[in-house]
Design a protein around this nucleic acid. Structure first.
Length: 373
DNA sequence: CACTCGTGGCG
DNA sequence: TCGCCAAGAGT
């Protein structure tokens, strides 16, 4: 019944459309106008896979240098499978959504063992890999293997919402099924790779979120929103709620040989497995941020630590969170004992540790403070 | 389904 | 300045 409603919807929206002409115009445009991107040099499944993971919620311009470096450092399934986790995370540093790379390496290791290093080519098998959801599964199957599977991302939902005049809220997870059903009706079985990539490329270059270039669009004659002059009203997308603010106290602690104390974050959750300066959530009002941070660190390392506050406060904005960080500095005694949870590293060694951007800001603030007191 | 999970760029 | 975004997946 629900399935029937989806089917009725697409039949209604596809009525009277010359699908073959649409495919040819769309693919013809992509063949001519596609950007020269590093992951388009070939259709090696591993390269397609890595690029699709990096591109999740991330701009093309941001991904390009990461992709190039990553493929140099880990050029094959086996290379990534056998790589040191710390080095893989370091290669991802600054790209965000760090669970992506942890899942990618886990999945690559599974492919290396279970599939003898060959990326599977069936929806069931590839979807079972960690970090491979409906979009990525469809992208790899179509781009690397030429299978006529939908790859519905934000671009595709925006483009098709306009062409087919679909008013579903694309912020809702349920909306994706509508568009997947539409793609199954529209996709060119002779070139699924170009068809899917063309829809996304069109969304990136022409059918943009604000002020789409409809006059330049190769498929504007098929677009119902353009025909009705409502392209600016689509897609329908509900708003996200705004971030909550959290106050942190963080300490840059240095021993007598100039080494920094850093800690490893937990293996799950926010910024998992990244290294950072010791910090804790504080309440600015009571009983004083400095005292709260000192108590936290003293309890953590069973030693009395005293810190001084730096004048500037750092703000770091996440998708769903805002960190307001007050930065402190302090010295470490000589008889400081090591453990797995934290390390003492020189400024040179610090470069080998993956740190969140927020803590790179902290480091910079500290270095500036000792340079110009 | 609602929420978590990063970052940098843009109008 | 700030909300919105950019080739989503896991829980």
């Amino acid at each position: 019944m629900e399935e029937q409603k989806v089917k009725n919807k697409q039949l209604e929206n596809l009525k009277g459309m010359d699908i073959k002409a649409f495919q040819d115009d769309l693919i013809g445009w992509f063949s001519k106008e596609q950007r020269d991107l590093p992951w388009r040099k070939d259709s090696d499944p591993y390269r397609v896979w890595v690029s699709e993971i990096m591109l999740q919620q991330t701009r093309v311009d941001t991904v390009i240098p990461y992709f190039t470096r990553f493929m140099e450092q880990f050029p094959s399934i086996r290379a990534l499978a056998e790589a040191d986790e710390e080095k893989v995370l370091k290669a991802w540093e600054g790209l965000g959504y760090y669970s992506r790379v942890r899942n990618l390496q886990a999945a690559v290791r599974e492919v290396n063992e279970k599939y003898d290093g060959n990326v599977p080519d069936t929806p069931k098998e590839i979807s079972s890999l960690k970090g491979v959801g409906p979009y990525t599964a469809g992208a790899i199957l179509s781009i690397a293997y030429g299978k006529p599977e939908p790859a519905v991302d934000g671009n595709v939902m925006r483009v098709l919402s306009r062409i087919l005049l679909i008013s579903e809220d694309i912020a809702k997870p349920a909306a994706r099924k509508i568009f997947e059903a539409s793609v199954r009706e529209l996709i060119d079985h002779s070139n699924p790779s170009y068809f899917n990539q063309a829809l996304m490329e069109l969304g990136a270059l022409i059918c943009t979120p604000t002020s789409p270039s409809c006059l330049l669009c190769p498929v504007n004659e098929y677009c119902q929103a353009y025909h009705d002059g409502v392209q600016q009203e689509l897609p329908v997308k509900s708003k996200k709620k705004k971030q909550r603010a959290v106050d942190l106290g963080a300490a840059v602690l240095v021993d007598q040989e100039g080494r920094f104390l850093i800690c490893k974050r937990p293996g799950e959750g926010l910024l998992a497995n990244l290294w950072e300066f010791p910090n804790t959530e504080v309440s600015p009002a009571f009983p004083g941020e400095r005292r709260q941070l000192e108590d936290y660190i003293s309890g953590l390392y069973e030693m009395e630590i005293q810190v001084a506050v730096l004048p500037e406060r750092i703000q770091h904005i996440f998708t769903h969170l805002i960190w307001n960080i007050l930065v402190f500095t302090g010295g470490l005694p000589e008889d400081f004992e090591k453990s797995d949870h934290y390390r003492l590293v020189s400024p040179e060694e610090l470069k080998d540790y993956a740190m969140p951007v927020s803590h790179q800001k902290i480091l910079k603030l500290y270095l500036d403070s000792i340079k110009t007191p």
